[in-house]
Design a binder for these strands. Structure first.
Lengths: 336, 336
DNA sequence: CTGTTAGCGCATTCAT
DNA sequence: ATGAATGCGCTAACAG
């Protein structure tokens, strides 16, 4: 029985056991083709006997290739991210990379810290829906290859989910249902997606001649949605488009509490399709493509790592409205 | 402008710039108290000028302390885990540890691979709801400090969420509502929690004289729950206790599709309280305490890392029934 | 207090 | 095809 519990078996021990030089053991793992098949086999056998496992850290120090990357998200518990995280991991795994997960808690400072903390031990970083300033992001991008998801900073590779197209469809959808007065419940002010969505509703509303108001739910959460309901109702609107599904769900709950029926008296549209058809009534929302975004971000990052060439690449994923059951005709009004 | 993009500034360069030995630079960061305040300041200044950042990897190689740990879960997208993940990160962060997140996709082999892949670069590993065999787990525990969540393997520190107490309460609750024929929709066969829950319903049912059947939904998912509905109904039961909330939600949806009203005609109980009151009708479930589990697991692991002493520590978190709106009196039957 | 000297485990020249 | 030597960047005795 080998396996010294701590420290682990080293290349030297294997070398001795196999009766070869340390470099040969190293080569047996990294460039087997440089060795005679028998030697490789002998080494592998010795290694197996001793329970040798290459030390990732030592290798990283020597080669500069860490073999891992980091993914930082604002909130793991937000259902928008898990599928993305999962997709990123799967994709990273395909190229034998490990991924660090960072949770910034929607806090720019925390995000900055994580960035610093990770950058020392990963080859590249993916920043999803960052809340950090452009300047800080650019600064970090100078130190490590960085890929952004849902954020547009000049000179930095990114994957953008264009929720604008879907939001425009949603606005049209509401107009078709004769809603004249709608409200957009906005998310984090530092969120690129929020700016984009907000702009999209605004533009579409203008074009369609709708009356648009804004209510803010600074942090995207069930709670925030719940608390936004009074403000929404006060605007006299008959429909709301929420920054995301979670917020929309909170709005739905708040509406329920106040006895406002959906979609009978009020229509709600979410965004991101993070909840699937799981809600009741099932939520009309905008598709998210977060899985593709996660996958793409990783392959883009890997590409950047491979060739120093890739500089300012952007992928844009379009979205569409998914009509389910929280939208319907505007209620009849007592006054014309 | 310093900051050479790649490679980074090293301790030697700082040493030269500051006119001191390399070891002093090292000490300035790890043991400033060993140096005169002025020297420290001079070094920090030089470092700042050059944009020096300590290389985590090199430090790890030299000290054996990686400063990170791994957390492996079966499915990031399962709402039971994100809060746990988040809690673990927060707790790890308090001690300045980074955490690798692994997603096994409910696959024992994948889990095994991740374990191997991570163990080279972390000081300890937390395995949440593992699907791996006891043997393999024990084997890995030999190489790296390991802490289990929701799995009981002799000799390995663990945090157990005792859903048994809550499940027993749930069964009692159904019996109080005069349900006589219930079914337990089981989860992964390799899941400790599933075994525990299954045993708990069985025991409680026996004690209460209930008629109990089993339906299997091997993987805990909305889909699996949906597909289990026919089998559930075929058992002639009037209530179901599901392995977890996600499965319960699927069951709810399936029941809806078939026009079976809840809780009018059928009662459903979930487990883990992963969805909160977000479902409609809001789900009667068993509390999970996953946040505490994540936090505890990390502090336990850190404790193990600190003193080689801690060996077989176990924390057990009890759970309770949370009554919401998916349970009600058993429907009247046409035949006695 | 601070400089000198050795490694940590591995990859990689350069020889042979 | 293989061995010997050197260094990645840092920490940790060991001396002064």
């Amino acid at each position: 029985m080998a396996a010294e519990r701590k420290g682990g078996v080293t290349i030297s021990q294997v070398a001795k056991e196999a009766g070869v030089a340390r470099s040969s053991v190293s080569r047996a793992y990294t460039r087997p083709d440089m060795l005679s098949p028998e030697t490789v086999e002998r080494i592998k056998a010795a290694a197996g006997r001793l329970g040798y496992v290459p030390n990732h850290t030592a290798r990283a120090l020597s080669t500069g290739r860490y073999g891992n990357l980091a993914l930082i998200v604002p909130d793991v518990a937000n259902p928008f991210f898990p599928p993305m995280i999962r997709a990123a991991q799967v994709e990273a795994d395909r190229s034998d990379f490990c991924v660090f997960l960072g949770n910034s808690d929607e806090d720019p400072e925390k995000e900055d810290q994580l960035l610093g903390r990770f950058s020392g031990q990963v080859e590249g970083i993916i920043l999803a829906s960052p809340r950090l300033s452009d300047e800080r992001i650019a600064a970090h991008a100078l130190l490590r290859p960085l890929v952004l998801i849902n954020r547009d900073v000049k000179g930095i590779p990114k994957v953008l989910i264009d929720s604008g197209t879907g939001i425009a469809e949603a606005t049209q959808h509401l107009a078709d249902f004769r809603h004249r007065n709608i409200v957009y419940v906005s998310g984090p002010s530092t969120s690129w997606s929020n700016k984009q969505r907000r702009a999209a509703v605004r533009q579409a509303s203008k074009k369609l001649g709708l009356d648009l108001s804004f209510v803010s739910a600074s942090v995207p959460s069930f709670e925030a949605g719940l608390q936004a309901v009074d403000a929404i109702l006060a605007k006299g609107a008959t429909a709301a488009i929420a920054f995301d599904d979670v917020t929309a769900q909170g709005i739905l709950a708040g509406l329920g509490e106040r006895g406002v029926s959906v979609p009978g008296e009020f229509s709600v549209v979410g965004c991101d399709d993070a909840l699937g058809p799981l809600t009741v009534p099932s939520l009309t929302t905008v598709s998210s493509r977060s899985i593709e975004a996660g996958k793409l971000a990783v392959s883009l990052l890997l590409e950047v790592l491979g060739s120093q060439a890739v500089r300012d690449a952007s992928y844009v994923l379009e979205t569409h409205l998914i009509v389910r059951s929280t939208t319907g005709p505007a209620p009849e009004r007592g006054q014309g």
